[in-house]
Structure formats: structure tokens, C-alpha cells
Design a protein around this nucleic acid. Structure first.
Lengths: 176, 176
DNA sequence: ACCTGAACACCGTTCAAGT
DNA sequence: ACCTGAACACCGTTCAAGT
């Protein structure tokens, strides 16, 4: 005797995303997700293998959102870097999750492609990959440390970000 | 009637560090730590407020070890960056923990001072802080992404690291 | 075919009772 | 003064039983 579906995978991932951002990773329990979508915890296992798989899906959703934001920039390295940092500040838990969990490879590749294209425009194809990695690593580390409160020494964080961006852009646009 | 101490805070932190590196953060349970030091879990609460406090102590021990490694370099930005990455590769869980937990401020300041001094030698005191943040953010992001397996595109990671280091060093040694 | 209650093996943490 | 067993409120997950 079939039963009508009372939830869906998309609804579960959306609930997971909202709970993650509101309560942090430890608040993202199977029971909390189930509560939010209106079923009991065991029912989630019909759509998701286990909690780790749910975290991966939430991480993938975060990368997809990041990709959307990068797509909406002007396509320069500076625009991309600023959008990247803005995402980290507005979605701190999603940002941290995507660094600690492996999101879907295609979603990751899509977001990476924007950085790669911007790097290619600036330095040419021979060094595009290395240049993209330089900028991505810097923006990732800057955002990670900013979220962790690791910049304890005094000084203006905006200034530090723009300083880094200016120096990186100049370093990449000067050949050799 | 006093009882002889059966463990110590140092022993608990050391056990936590070993378990973290061997089993990951989810394996670092109060019962696992208690087992390793030879007491029952409730006894740990005589020396540590709760599991979060223990994680902070383990994170601080990791920063201290990082500080020791930075102290053993030649003091150039390149030497420091390579030692930083080596630490992340050899102590991946400790490295991740120190980014997600706030370690002791003094320990963090000590490790930061080596980077700040190297930056000062290269760019002078006016821009030393920004330059140190640029290099630290890059090394942090590079290591984070390397550990996360986020560099999925083909290409040599050693080459990407040395490319980044060379460009950063050049960008910082050229004034303006 | 999906949903549920009950159950299991784990957690972190508290606390009264021992020595 | 430290250590312990017992207990509590939580977890993730499984599974037989319902519809």
C-alpha cells in the first residue's frame, strides 16, 4: 500500500542548510532536520544514506550558491575575490563546511572555472592554473582566518584585504 | 582522605593530541581520552571544564608546536611558508583544529611574531602587518585546500606552491 | 513504498558515594 | 581531594510493524 511522500530530498537539504547556518554543525542533527521537514528521523534514511551524506549535499548546495555569486561578478580577479569573501562572511557555516567536506566535483569545478577564467585573462593560459590557485588560496585563507578571529593583531582588515588584492593583481600582471 | 593523582592536565592534553591525529575529531571523546590516561571519564572534569575546553588546549598545543617549527627556520618568508605547509601536512588534524578552535592568544601571538618579523625584514615596518597577513592567508588557504583535496584540477601542487611563493615574495619586495 | 515507534550502542555531563 | 558507578538527556542508526 503506497504512502504519499511527506518530504523530499530538496526539502531535506534546504532544512539542513538553514539549521546549519542558524545553529552550527553540532545543531544539524538528523532529528532537527526531521522535525523541520515534518517527519521522524528514521524516515530521512529513505532519501539520504547517513548524516555524512547529508552534510555533503549541504556542502554542495553551498558551493552552488558560491558559484552563482561568482557568476554574477564582473569576472575580474578583484570582483571574484570580493564576492568570495562576501560569501564567507554571509554564509560562514556553509563556507566552513565546504572546506571540511567534499562537495560534488561538478559543482566545485563550476565555481573554480570562474577563477580560472579570470586568471587566464590576466596571465595567459601557461600560468593560469597556478595563478588561480594563488588567488583562491589567499582568499580562502583570508576568509578562514577572518571567520576564526585569527587576525588578533590590531589593524584594519579591509585595508589588509585590499592590500593583498592589489599586490596579488600586480604580481600576476607583471610577467616573468 | 586525599587520593593520589592518577593523571595530570599535561597527560590529558597529550592523550587528546594523539587521539585527534590518529582518529580525527570525532574519535576524540572524553571516554577515549580517559581510557588512554587510565581514569574514568568523569575524572577528566576535575582538570578540564568540558570537551570544548580540552579541544582548545589541544589547539594551543598545536600552535605551540607550529611556533617551534617556525622558530627553527632561517627566518625568511620562504622558509617560514614551507615550514607552515610542512606542519599542515604532518599534523593535518592539529592544523585543522587550530583554524576552527581559538587557541591561547599568547601562543598564537608567538607563532605570528615569526611571520611578522620576516615580513618586516622584507617590506619595512609600514607595511609589515599587511604583508604578513597576505603571506599567512595564502599559506593557510593553500594548506587547507591541499588537505581538503580541493585542488582537483590536474597540475603539480609543488609547482603551484613555489609559483605562489615566488610571486608573493616578488610582489612584496617591489615597493609601491 | 514510505513512515513510525521502539530499541541499540554510543555520546557529554552531573552527582552522590567511596577512599 | 580525587576517583568512581550510576544515571540523564541526548545522538546516529536499524528494523520490524504499520498503512
Amino acid at each position: 500500500m503506497p504512502t504519499p511522500d511527506r518530504t523530499s530530498l530538496a526539502q531535506i537539504v534546504a532544512a539542513g542548510t538553514e539549521i546549519l547556518e542558524a545553529e552550527g554543525p553540532s545543531g544539524l542533527t538528523m532529528r532537527a532536520v526531521a522535525d523541520r521537514v515534518g517527519v521522524r528521523a528514521p524516515s530521512l534514511y529513505k532519501r539520504v544514506r547517513d548524516r555524512d551524506a547529508l552534510l555533503s549535499l549541504v556542502a554542495t548546495a553551498a558551493v552552488d550558491e558560491l558559484g552563482d555569486r561568482l557568476a554574477a561578478t564582473d569576472g575580474t580577479l578583484a570582483g571574484i575575490a570580493r564576492a568570495y569573501r562576501a560569501f564567507a562572511r554571509e554564509r560562514p557555516e556553509g563556507f566552513r563546511l565546504l572546506l571540511s567536506t567534499s562537495p560534488d566535483a561538478d559543482s566545485l569545478a563550476r565555481a573554480s572555472a570562474f577563477v580560472l577564467r579570470a586568471a587566464d585573462d590576466l596571465v595567459g593560459s601557461a600560468e593560469a592554473l597556478e595563478a588561480a590557485r594563488l588567488v583562491t588560496a589567499w582568499a580562502t585563507g583570508f576568509s578562514t582566518m577572518e571567520l576564526a578571529g585569527a587576525f588578533r593583531l590590531q589593524g584594519d582588515l579591509e585595508k589588509a584585504f585590499e592590500f593583498g588584492l592589489a599586490r596579488l593583481t600586480r604580481a600576476l600582471s607583471t610577467p616573468d
